[in-house]
Write a protein that binds this DNA or RNA. Structure first.
Lengths: 162, 162
DNA sequence: TATTGTTATACTCTATAACTATA
DNA sequence: TATAGTTATAGAGTATAACAATA
């Protein structure tokens, strides 16, 4: 009789954490070719969706303190991907925008994202992929997650090899 | 005419990363009451599934270098949750095992996991939950993920508030 | 000579908290 | 007095590499 405690099989929560970390690692690895980290890619996407927001707002959404956001944005500005614009009405704030170069890179990023999606979902039929999408969107919505941001952006340099 | 570039909606990969980080953060927060981090909980589960493995093997599965595993295991040993047993046949290795106290805590952990699962999947019917489980397991299997471990264990102290 | 476990150390990253300029 | 942005700094966490014991 070797009947000890029954080992519970992993549930949805564990699989989401596992697959999520796996997906994030693969994506980080993929975009090293574009010389971007996931958090940098996230900021570019956020600026495309809502241009002109303040550093404070963006830092909040990314889950990082303003003191960390400054050098984070500095690098992207030095690379000519984003630009800071003064607001004459309130000279304390910077409005952040994508440059043309930033928009171009965002296009390459979208391509990388599509290939990433394809490889990650290779085990699914097209129909299954769509059904999965529906369920995950419903969960994300009910859990109060916003479309553009996710908590993993806090980690500035995840190991690409995950 | 405000038709600029069409903003692509997030796909499965992004939602998995987002929900996965969210789920991991909620779980981390939940088990602070048991005074455990996700990585510590992961080790306890690994020892329940396969007792007696060496520190080297376990460190590899957890994605951490041996030098980091030692103080990590030290703490759990000092708290009486795991124990190191010498192997007379090869005196270099320690075989790690759960103590009775560790098994008890693992039971509380399982309960926390069930409540976590319930809240995370609140938006789904029971049937949808099961269908989601099937799809995620198939993906995890095809992507080569092992049942007990996930790459997020590398992060020793994720913000509980995620 | 190779491997397990351990320790030491240098380095990176981080949050906290000042500080400035504007409001 | 409060807020956006910035800078400084002290502390925590990490990987790398050396080391000791055993094979």
């Amino acid at each position: 009789m070797t009947a000890s405690a029954p080992m519970p099989r992993p549930g949805v929560a564990f699989l989401l954490a596992q697959l999520g970390a796996h997906a994030a690692g693969l994506f980080a690895e993929r975009i090293t070719g574009l010389d971007l980290t996931p958090a940098q890619a996230g900021l570019l996407r956020m600026l495309a969706a809502r241009p002109g927001r303040s550093q404070r707002e963006l830092a909040d959404d990314l889950g990082m303190p303003p003191s960390r956001f400054v050098p984070f944005a500095d690098e992207l500005e030095e690379r000519g991907l984003i630009e800071r614009r003064r607001n004459p009405a309130d000279r304390r704030v910077y409005a952040l925008h994508l440059t043309g170069k930033g928009e171009t890179l965002l296009g390459e990023l979208a391509q990388a994202g599509m290939e990433h999606e394809r490889l990650l979902c290779e085990a699914l039929t097209d129909e299954e992929h769509d059904r999965l999408l529906v369920l995950l969107r419903r969960m994300a919505d009910q859990q109060g997650l916003r479309p553009d941001v996710h908590p993993g952006y806090r980690n500035l340099r995840p190991r690409p090899g995950a």
